[in-house]
């Protein structure tokens, strides 16, 4: 019961975030990069959360920043989960030497440290939201392939699939109509947890200043405030809002993930991304 309520609450929060991101131009009173006042003004009726060191409206930045952060988190999660699901099902279904080879390749790739590799690979493109989220999605899928492959492998050996094969169903059909639906719970949960993971990672990357500092997103907002003296000046309205926004969505995603996981199968184990 409580799980169900939690799930609903977190989905509601997620909807709220998405609504804000979609309706940003209508909600935000000013543009994200427009200079609309004196720098470092405390909150008042004109600037709900004050202004930053450039004189930009923090509330507007917060609203617009949701777009970048959400796009980043969900796109890379979608990409990563799609790749690992497709590859996992194919490997699990066909098995044999292809499976063996790919698994060995994955084994070899595993020791390469993901985080610095991610930074290295982003240098190949302009550091932009879309490019980094693609790189992140592809890299993140490596660990997911095994997760999907294992249940796909055991599913492929069930009499139910054997039966489908014997009546002449094509491989593609079996994979998409029979195996995939059975894996949907695990894929869904994986997607939600991956979104949370990537979203936080994206904000973190942006926080340590590894991409376009002109992009308005929560990570660069935190970075700006952190390096601009928000702590020593005690300017809570500068550093807290973007941080709390991240905490909020991260919590909602985490709770949604765990609740989903329990409602699908209390014994499921998908936390290892």
């Amino acid at each position: 019961m409580t799980r169900n309520i939690l799930l609903r609450v977190s989905v509601a929060i997620l909807f709220l975030y998405f609504a804000v991101a979609l309706l940003a131009p209508f909600i935000a009173p000013y543009g994200a990069t427009a200079i609309v006042g004196a720098p470092l003004q405390p909150p008042d009726s004109e600037h709900l959360l004050g202004t930053n060191n450039v004189g930009q409206d923090i509330f507007s930045q917060l609203v617009y920043g949701s777009q970048v952060t959400l796009i980043f988190g969900f796109c890379s999660a979608l990409l990563s989960v799609s790749i690992s699901t497709c590859a996992g099902i194919v490997l699990g279904y066909y098995g044999g030497s292809v499976d063996e080879v790919v698994c060995r390749v994955l084994d070899v790739l595993m020791p390469i440290p993901i985080f610095p590799l991610l930074i290295v690979l982003t240098t190949f493109f302009n550091p932009g939201v879309v490019q980094v989220s693609i790189v992140m999605g592809v890299l993140g899928s490596i660990h997911g392939i095994r997760l999907i492959r294992a249940p796909a492998l055991s599913l492929a050996e069930t009499p139910f699939i054997e039966g489908a094969k014997s009546i002449g169903a094509s491989d593609l059909r079996i994979m998409s109509r029979h195996i995939l639906p059975n894996l949907m719970p695990i894929v869904t949960v994986k997607f939600v947890t991956a979104s949370q993971h990537f979203l936080v990672m994206g904000v973190g990357l942006s926080f340590i200043g590894l991409w376009d500092t002109m992009t308005v997103d929560w990570g660069s907002m935190i970075q700006n405030a952190y390096s601009g003296g928000a702590l020593s000046l005690g300017l809570w309205w500068w550093i807290l809002p973007p941080g709390l926004a991240v905490v909020g969505i991260s919590l909602a995603l985490a709770l949604a993930g765990y609740s989903l996981e329990e409602s699908f199968n209390p014994r499921l184990e998908v936390n290892r991304i």
Binding site: T33, A34, I35, N53, V54, Q56, T122, T123, N126, P127, G128, L210, W211, D212, T213, M214, T215, N224, G228
Partner: peptide, 27 residues
């Protein structure tokens, strides 16, 4: 952050002249 301030001001002013200014960042 000073360069960001400059670009923000230019974006505003040059925008009123009808010029669309965008930025692209390189690491």
């Amino acid at each position: 952050s000073n360069i960001q301030k400059i670009v923000s001001v230019l974006k505003n002013d040059w925008g009123t002249l009808g010029i669309k200014v965008s930025t692209v960042a390189y690491e």
